[in-house]
Design a protein around this nucleic acid. Structure first.
Lengths: 194, 194
DNA sequence: GCTTTTTATTATCTTTTGTTATCGTTTTGA
DNA sequence: TCAAAACGATAACAAAAGATAATAAAAAGC
């Protein structure tokens, strides 16, 4: 049991790794401390690193007409990266910012990409991660298309996303639900009275 | 050049296949004709097939409070399947319906899944397909979260999704944009006057 | 500990959207 | 070919959301 154990455990929720396979990655890992408000990825810059959150939390946001629109949150034991920038090589559209002081395990995407090409098991990990992402995005999209803002709020407070409600400032959550902070406050008020 | 060539070409936009690799798949392919309004996948049933559209078009929809909500369209040279049902093994949440008479190449998902486990190149194909999906879903989600319905409509008619506007009934497009058909009609009217 | 900044609520006003219904037009299928 | 169904535009009204501003409470930073 060391600093890196949570990362291995998380990877092994997707594929079992032999010690040899794990040792391929180990030398490339780095522990990085990040202060609140610091950024892990920046809009306009190519992302080339993957982070794994040991402590702390993050949000990611897009900039639309000069305004930040927060669309996702990350907590302990999750990966953070501008995934699309990594896989396409294009500049990132999104910025990832620490919402608290945080500790990450960091490694370069190109190391992982290298493993993909030579090892079936790592390639499979790449597939399963992408599938995991796609499933999450699909669910999210369907919610946005088929539920009203109030229904989305109710789903959030009743569902398995408790961490978000408990730990994230409300105006960011409003963004996440696709509404304004004022509107969210009204919805809370409405829901309370029922 | 035969019936199956478009499928091979499409796969090879993701990974180059040796003839040997292509021949792994070939014996499992089937040509299937589908009539307008027929279904390729059905809500509540486990999906186990992947289709590739040779001719025709499809929509997929979810059922929310008894109403169909169309969220995506498929045209020639695209894959259709309840992807999430295939990879999770859970019953499909969505239904795929032909919007015109159509011709498909069909093969079982389990065949592909078998290839994943024994061939690095096919495994890579699986990863790249999932990544492709994730990128599309992410773009879509960001549009829903950051653009107004009118902006989404403008993006649709100006962007590279011309096929949708040209070939799909308007009330389905309204669903796709996350608004009601009536609201979409108003937006069209507003946009026209500018 | 105290000031500044951030955050959430509330009120007002305007705009947009949803709902329902009506009415031509087009498409479909028997 | 002809009746039925599907489709799109529009109107009227209600409900909800956006924009803005004022205020209060909480958190952050020095």
């Amino acid at each position: 049991m060391n600093m890196y154990t949570p990362l291995r455990q998380q990877i092994e929720r997707f594929v079992k790794l032999s010690d040899a396979e794990w040792n391929m990655l180990l030398p490339h890992l780095e522990i990085r401390k990040i202060r609140k408000h610091d950024r892990f990825a920046e809009e306009g810059e190519k992302a080339h690193e993957i982070g794994f959150v040991l402590e702390g939390m993050f949000r990611h946001f897009y900039i639309h007409q000069g305004e930040e629109r927060t669309t996702y949150f990350y907590f302990e034991n999750h990966f953070i990266t501008s995934y699309i920038s990594c896989i396409t090589g294009q500049p990132s559209q999104l910025t990832i910012e620490a919402l608290s002081d945080a500790t990450l395990i960091v490694f370069p995407y190109r190391v992982l990409a290298g493993f993909f090409e030579i090892n079936l098991n790592w390639q499979k990990f790449g597939r399963l991660i992408a599938e995991y992402l796609a499933i999450g995005l699909e669910e999210r999209m369907v919610g946005l298309l088929t539920l009203s803002p109030e229904e989305r709020y109710l789903e959030l407070i009743q569902g398995n996303k408790k961490k978000i409600i408990e730990r994230i400032p409300q105006h960011y959550i409003a963004n996440y639900l696709g509404i304004t902070p004022v509107s969210m406050s009204r919805i809370r008020n409405r829901v309370l009275k029922k």
